[in-house]
Design a protein around this nucleic acid. Structure first.
Length: 323
DNA sequence: CGATGTCAAGGAATC
DNA sequence: GATTCCTTGACATCG
């Protein structure tokens, strides 16, 4: 028997929508303190809905590492008390938190300045979770980065970037397979060299897996990289299947043409049938958590849960139980 | 008020 | 070497 938290990312759509951070522009002096007020409200929502896992927005501390805005750089220290309190609240509710810096955080960039700014961003994310007193399961997920110069050179550059990180940051950062360059086997090998655990993203795996690694093996590869006592996690999403449209400017008017979605595009919701198959196949062994990436956010997770229950799967206090 | 432009940030493809 | 897309949301500004 295995247990699994199911989480969602950043934005709360339920209850009419809740703000996830102080997103005002720098001219209006946004502050982490405001974001933490929002986060507190979100924790309340998570408690009410029995949602045990949540990805906080990377920009929780606005401009915290912006090179031209040093006046914003001390927010984490300024909010030490508030951070400790909210971290304690998350612990009390047993909610697993994480974050996921996006495409601009490239630790393996060819440009050393960009590697340094990526490292600064990761230090900040780690400092935030440290100030909250969160356990090791609160990880900061990143992609390996760009593939310039080939996989080998790109992985070597990642290690150069890794060298820039403090022990505190290294203890939080985990690496994820992506949908075009770094497949699960490559990421697992890189993990052996730097020690970062691996998050396996199943949709990315469907998009890019030149080594043809079977699901079970990919799962084992990823989970072997996690330290004893820290529950691993995976990313799960269903591909978008509806037609979108492409907008193109022709002169002064906008022309809309139908566009077929890429496999990697996230759907609004999660296909419960595919999810059930995957979880019955992969569950029943070690515990692991599942971060759902769907445009429907919390609503997608709540709907998925209802559908799993209707299918006879067991959910207890928001945790999925398999086997 | 609704529509449109802009945002801190990189990489890769294309011209 | 410069431009555009990728992809996403919300602030900010314009009409």
């Amino acid at each position: 028997m295995s247990t699994h938290r199911i989480g969602f990312a950043v934005k709360v759509l339920g209850e009419g929508g809740l703000p996830s951070h102080d997103a005002r522009r720098w001219q209006s002096d946004p502050h982490l303190r405001v974001s933490l007020g929002y986060l507190e409200a979100i924790l309340g929502y998570l408690e009410r809905k029995e949602l045990p896992m949540y990805r906080v927005v990377t920009q929780l501390a606005p401009y915290a590492t912006h090179p031209d805005l040093p006046q914003f750089h001390g927010q984490i220290e300024e909010c030490a008390e508030e951070l400790a309190a909210i971290g304690a609240r998350a612990a009390e509710l047993d909610i697993r938190l994480s974050s996921h810096p996006g495409q601009y955080t490239v630790l393996n960039s060819e440009d050393e300045r960009i590697r340094r700014s990526a490292a600064a961003e990761l230090e900040s994310q780690a400092a935030l979770f440290d100030a909250m007193g969160l356990p090791a399961e609160a990880v900061v997920v990143i992609h390996v980065g760009g593939a310039a110069g080939g996989m080998e050179a790109a992985c070597d550059r990642f290690l150069e970037g890794w060298e820039l990180l403090s022990d505190a940051a290294r203890a939080r950062v985990v690496i994820e397979n992506d949908d075009r360059s770094f497949a699960i086997r490559t990421v697992a090998e890189l993990s052996k060299r730097c020690g970062a655990p691996v998050v396996w993203d199943i949709l990315h795996h469907r998009c890019h897996d030149p080594d043809q690694v079977p699901d079970r093996e990919a799962l084992d590869l990823a989970f072997a990289t996690w330290p004893e006592g820290v529950v691993p996690k995976i990313h799960y999403s269903s591909p978008r299947l509806d037609m979108g449209e492409k907008k193109r400017k022709v002169g002064r008017r906008v022309e809309r043409t139908p566009a077929l979605p890429q496999l990697r595009a996230h759907a609004d919701l999660v296909d419960p049938i595919a999810f059930e198959y995957v979880m019955r196949d992969l569950g029943g062994g070690p515990d692991f958590d599942v971060m759902v990436e769907a445009k429907g956010k919390d609503l997608a997770v709540l709907r998925l849960r209802e559908q799993l229950i209707a299918r006879g799967m067991e959910i207890e206090a928001g945790w999925l139980i398999v086997g």
